[in-house]
Design a protein around this nucleic acid. Structure first.
Lengths: 337, 337
DNA sequence: CCGAGCATTGTTATCGATAACATTTCCCAC
DNA sequence: GTGGGAAATGTTATCGATAACAATGCTCGG
């Protein structure tokens, strides 16, 4: 019944039907205080009758800002970033914002800059940059100061509003759990070292070992894939002194598990393994994986809150939000044999 | 250097600098034929000098259409839908389109209708609906006929442009592979039966068994999670006559593997298992999973092509595109013991 | 009962692009 | 060299909203 006529109704159509000026309709729509209750109702009725919905493009044109939030993210199917995006979209939708995604193959300055420009063309109301690596931080210079921006997983030193998971604490919890189980030390298979996420987890790992006066084994660094976890696992499996491994994410952990299994080293009997992320499948690994859960939903909601705070010119509650991570104990950890 | 002044330059600024009218600038921007080469260059130079970028909102207002493609998808972190989205965004970006995501918690009529309306407010140039269940099809009535639409994984009978993976052929390949290995019959752990994806895989499974004159075992249906795969696997593990299982996706397969492992039934020695999707981790399951790969990238690109075809009023090449699926053989299948 | 002052409503300008139409310029055939 | 027609450019209207300002109408104190 809505789009029956030649085109969808505009504000003037509503105004005519309600017997007021289009400006009054605008006022009703924007909840301006000085509109008589009776008029307001009449306008609302007309809006409902016509099935009128405001034209965002027109509004964006005159206000210079849309109801659109731009997200800049690396094009990847990694569990973390993908979850992040979904959660953020959901939070934004609840707040009445649409989300425009701008993927980029690499987080280098030029790519990011291009995506940011595309978003600015659309007159986005704000930007969220999922900037896991340092090179992304440089591109921040491209973003005009008057556009609200929030970084996720970005550089804590960048001086922009930032939301991030407490990687260090998560890693500490994992390592402590292994030490408490009686292991002499813990090996670490990390993500790419340029990632802030990786850096935080490495830091937490090293720090915890040092505080306990344990030897810090050499770092095995990889990308985030099961394939590289497998490769690292093949090395570790060959070394009998390895009894505990902390993998920087669950997929790496899965690769490690496979490698250990192949060489006949049982988990957790011979080797204990902990992951990071708590992907939905983690409980069904062989064996069920003890891991560190990060709440992407919390990160997304915090990011949105920071963003909306900037838009309303309201005082921003805090510049940096750190979302806690939580150890989830399953069956991949045991005391050393 | 760009946004230095009070506001970004508009078309008239470019026109003034180039000594032409703003309309001529518009013509250059839109590659209209009747512009003298020399003028064109002068305008281009002015554009570059000012760092001018057209205001999409203004364009959208007057043309009634933006450079934005709306995607309607169920909010989920399932591998398939998430990959789909990423791939589509990438393809769209390459074609100069931004993508606005509208998630919905459930694919019921009202939710979809709300998201579609939000997209129409933004005057999207086209819509992509990832509509895996029948209830989503009903909501198609809400979409005005003049808005280009493509369905992904939708109802083949809906009479709208559709792109989908060849689920039936994929399932047939999987089942045939198991029969050729010598198994008497194949059990199937399916996804939710309302999903078209599930329906196609179930159909292919049943059809292949029947054609081979084999008994069709009762269907075990589940959601897409490892958790339900595990539950189904627990039942299957208890039945000695089960020697071959086709799981409707890799995560279900993972749950099945865990359950079999727990009950001491070895894969592939005692039971063979095949999955669907080929998630990046599939090669690192225990054992490496034989599965059916679907190319989300191909689906995304096909969808975009269909959409662009509709926009240009150009003749649409085909109404339905079926992307092939491909069996990936690893180590989870062997002849029965 | 009148006018100050606020509440309410209307009028007009504006955002920055494209569309439609008007106009000028140019080229070439006769 | 002139008229016709196409090529090139300019002018004005328009999309649909908000902003700024103008003009009412109402209330209440003196």
């Amino acid at each position: 019944m809505e789009t029956k006529g030649s085109r969808s109704p505009a504000m003037t159509d509503v105004a005519r039907l309600a017997g007021v000026s289009h400006q009054t309709v605008s006022r009703v729509l924007n909840d301006h205080p000085n509109v008589k209750e009776q008029t307001r109702l009449r306008v609302r009725a007309a809006i409902a009758e016509l099935g009128y919905r405001p034209n965002r493009a027109a509004r964006a044109l005159v206000t210079g800002r849309s109801q659109l939030i731009g997200v800049v993210a690396r094009n990847s199917m990694l569990y973390g970033p993908a979850s992040m995006l979904t959660e953020f979209e959901q939070a934004a939708a609840d707040a009445g914002f649409a989300v425009s995604v701008g993927s980029v193959r690499e987080l280098d300055r030029d790519s990011i800059s291009a995506v940011v420009d595309r978003h600015l063309d659309q007159r986005v109301a704000g930007l969220v940059v999922i900037a896991q690596v340092a090179s992304a931080t440089e591109a921040l210079a491209e973003i005009p100061a008057d556009v609200p921006v929030v970084f996720i997983d970005g550089d804590p030193a960048a001086g922009r509003p930032l939301v991030t998971v407490d990687q260090v604490a998560g890693a500490r919890a994992a390592v402590r759990h292994l030490l408490e189980a009686g292991h002499e030390t813990v090996w670490h298979v990390s993500g790419p070292t340029e990632w802030f996420d990786s850096a935080g987890r490495i830091h937490g790992w090293r720090q915890t070992l040092q505080e306990a006066g344990r030897e810090v084994p050499p770092l095995l660094s990889a990308d985030w894939s099961a394939a590289e976890g497998y490769r690292a696992g093949q090395m570790l499996a060959r070394m009998p002194e390895v009894t505990a491994v902390f993998a920087a994410n669950d997929h790496l952990a899965m690769g490690v598990l496979r490698a250990l299994h192949e060489r006949g080293r049982r988990v957790p009997h011979d080797v204990s393994v902990i992951g990071f992320d708590d992907v939905p499948e983690a409980a069904y690994f062989i064996p069920p994986l003890t891991t560190v859960r990060q709440s992407f939903g919390d990160v997304a909601r915090a990011a949105l809150t920071l963003l909306l705070g900037q838009m309303k010119e309201a005082p921003v509650p805090a510049d940096t939000v750190i979302v806690p991570a939580q150890l989830v104990v399953r069956e991949s950890v045991a005391p050393p044999a």
